[in-house]
């Protein structure tokens, strides 16, 4: 079950993106964090413990919400807006 739940602003243009190889739909104006966590339970795994992480401060301070793209980039999910066609990975180490 996803972490975040949409309570308002439902009528925005849908944006398609891929999460761990699965097609997903976000909304225009979503941050990457919102788009991912309304679909999934995590953004990434801790590099050290492997524990799941889903962000914490949501205002660009805690640096906990970095998420990988399929091309190896890293996005700070809470301050990056979702764009059509993004391809995101919550576990870039997993076999494709």
């Amino acid at each position: 079950m996803p972490i975040l739940t949409r309570l308002a602003e439902h009528d925005r243009r849908p944006l398609r993106f891929m999460l761990d190889g699965r097609p997903c739909i976000g909304r225009e104006g979503d941050t990457v964090l919102t788009a991912v966590l309304t679909e999934a339970e995590r953004l990434r795994l801790s590099e050290f413990s492997g524990a799941p992480r889903a962000g914490f401060c949501l205002m660009g301070a805690c640096q906990d919400c970095w998420i990988a793209t399929e091309t190896g980039e890293c996005l700070r999910a809470c301050t990056t807006f979702l764009a059509e066609g993004m391809r995101l990975l919550t576990d870039p180490g997993a076999a494709p």
């Binding site: 739940t5 979503d30 992480r53």
Partner: peptide, 25 residues
């Protein structure tokens, strides 16, 4: 406190104000 679904109070407010989302149900 590092479990997914745990956020700061400010973060919870940002989710709602800025994204129209709750951090949970």
């Amino acid at each position: 406190w590092t479990t997914p679904g745990v956020y700061t109070l400010g973060g919870a407010q940002v989710a709602l104000k800025f994204q129209g989302c709750g951090i949970g149900r």
